[in-house]
């Protein structure tokens, strides 16, 4: 870890002006990703701007429905907040599926959005990695890539985004509010993270001098028919091989609206509007779910060690949709898949 200096922001405006004034500086919130990467020397910010005490930690109802979530609320608190439990249980479940009790007490919503890939080469400075330093090459492409992307990858980078929370947010059509030195703007969550393309060093469309202030959820929470199903190599405290956030709006047994987001398969939470549109008006049954899963993964490409993920993702989609349709979401404590 390099020698850095530390300042504490007094307000959102202060945070933004401080970061604009010091290129290379970074915000720190919960610290659970940044401190980890600083210890590995993957991140070497000469200055940290502590935003953890900014009063951006409220969960507020928005007029006309919807919810505004402060960027600094801890993942655990968000999961337990009554409006989330009652109206957006998919989000609560995704949060509970991630990390550990301790980490969820620390991790912030903004930090979770910004967390970087767990690609093992990205973490190991002795191996080339385009995400760490563009042009060096991607070690994972021909290396150990069991955990890597099957969708949307590029020649330059085959990493995945590791978040659980973001998968649920993607399914819920969340909007990310950010504030720059001169103005604020809002990005759809599905546009927030990028595909790697030939700039894998950029994970998101956030500018370096922008602060995430809030995440907004539209009114529709799919609280009756949803499931977050995470498949991993051990039963807790592990990142997803594949995860699925499924949400259905049903009219009897017909689908009025379907949302499917996949985690662990791409550089961003994966959604495909065409697939969801095609499900409209269809019966909520195995045939529809199977067809949707196939369509979602039609363009999937395997690397040497991750071919299993394609089939696994398809099956997980079907299962999560089935759970959602039945109204029996996956429990995040009983590890049996319902």
């Amino acid at each position: 870890m390099i020698n850095f200096d530390y300042v504490r922001a007094t307000s959102a405006a202060d945070a933004v002006s401080r970061i604009a004034a010091f290129p290379g500086a970074k915000f720190i919130a919960g610290g659970t990703n940044l401190v980890d990467l600083m210890k590995e020397d993957v991140e070497r910010p000469p200055r940290l701007i502590d935003i953890s005490r900014l009063p951006l930690n409220r969960v507020e109802d928005i007029q006309g429905g919807g919810l505004r979530i402060g960027a600094l609320i801890a993942n655990a608190d968000l999961a337990g907040a009554p409006p989330v439990a009652q109206r957006y249980p998919l989000l609560g479940d995704a949060l509970r599926a991630g990390a550990s009790g301790q980490l969820r007490n620390m991790a912030s919503v903004g930090g979770n959005l910004m967390q970087r890939t767990r690609c093992c080469y990205f973490y190991d400075l002795a191996t080339p990695c385009n995400k760490r330093r563009p042009g060096d090459g991607c070690s994972a492409r021909d290396g150990l890539n069991r955990a890597h992307a099957i969708l949307g990858a590029s020649v330059a980078c085959v990493a995945t985004h590791p978040s659980d929370m973001c998968v649920a947010l993607a399914a819920l059509d969340a909007i990310v509010h950010v504030r720059g030195p001169t103005e604020g703007r809002a990005l759809a969550l599905t546009d927030f993270h990028r595909l790697p393309g030939d700039t894998p060093d950029r994970d998101t469309n956030l500018e370096p001098d922008e602060l995430i202030t809030a995440v907004e959820l539209p009114p529709k929470g799919f609280a009756e028919h949803y499931s977050y199903l995470k498949i991993r190599d051990r039963l807790s405290y592990a990142f997803a091989l594949v995860s699925v956030a499924a949400a259905l709006d049903l009219d009897g047994d017909r689908i009025r609206e379907a949302r499917i987001a996949l985690g662990g398969v791409a550089h961003k939470p994966w959604r495909d509007a065409r697939v969801e549109d095609a499900m409209r008006g269809e019966p909520a049954n195995a045939a529809t779910f199977g067809a949707a899963a196939q369509a979602l993964l039609r363009d999937a490409r395997a690397l040497a060690h991750n071919a299993f993920k394609i089939d696994l993702a398809a099956r997980t989609v079907v299962r999560a949709l089935t759970q959602a349709a039945r109204g029996t979401p996956q429990s995040q404590t009983d590890k049996r898949i319902g």
Binding site: I2, N3, F4, D5, Y6, P23, G24, D41, V42, E43, R44, P45, P46, L125, R132, R133, D136
Partner: peptide, 20 residues
Amino acid sequence: LQTTEVPAAKNPSLAPPDKL
């Protein structure tokens, strides 16, 4: 170099860190 440098901190300060 044992560490691949990222541009932000090409020449990290070798001076003693300020204590708070």
